[in-house]
């Protein structure tokens, strides 16, 4: 186990501190720790991890698992990449902002809002990113239910109507 001493240390630290707030802490290989967290605990966990040296959020990856949407927060101390999975129901998807701890994460959170339609609570108002201003506001392209072909067909019929 000494091979993964630092990874074990992180695992123990998180489990001791948050108990049931974190689950499925898994060391999948050297330098890769995966865990699941409750959305309401996310900000607290990241604050704690930042103090412990995990002071860089590489990015946030959104995902769609059917019933749940969610995001992976990739936090690193430059050596170990800890990926924190947070789920939120598709019926009312929302996650707290982490820009209070990592101001640099603002673009990543805007991506979650724009591409997945996950409401980020507490995110500063601003222009949308990365979709263009004229893209429909109620469509979220990275959701599995969104099909490129449907969008293209709808756009084609709309422009045909305009031509008439």
């Amino acid at each position: 186990m000494s091979e993964f001493a630092k990874e074990e240390e992180l695992k123990k630290m998180l489990e001791n501190k948050f108990g049931a707030g974190v689950s499925a802490v898994d060391i999948r290989r050297a330098r890769r720790v995966w865990l699941e967290a409750a959305p309401e605990k996310l900000v607290e966990i990241l604050k704690f991890m930042k103090a412990a040296g995990y002071n860089h959020i590489s990015t946030i990856t959104g995902f769609d698992e059917g019933e749940n949407l969610g995001a992976f927060y990739h936090a690193t101390d430059n050596h170990i990449m800890a990926t924190i999975k947070v789920k939120t129901p598709l019926s009312s998807p929302k996650l707290p902002t982490i820009t209070g701890i990592f101001p640099g994460a603002i673009s990543y959170e805007r991506e979650l809002e724009d591409l997945f339609g996950i409401k980020i609570e507490g995110l500063a108002p601003g222009r949308r990113y990365p979709l263009s201003d004229d893209f429909p506001k109620d469509q979220y392209p990275l959701r599995k239910s969104w099909k490129t072909a449907d969008f293209q067909a709808a756009r084609k019929s709309a422009s045909a109507k305009e031509a008439k």
Binding site: L115, R128, Y129, L131, S132, P141, L142
Partner: peptide
């Protein structure tokens, strides 16, 4: 303001 080059590669 960004996004002028968004090409939807992740979806593609």
């Amino acid at each position: 303001n960004l996004g002028y080059n968004h090409r939807g590669m992740e979806k593609a």
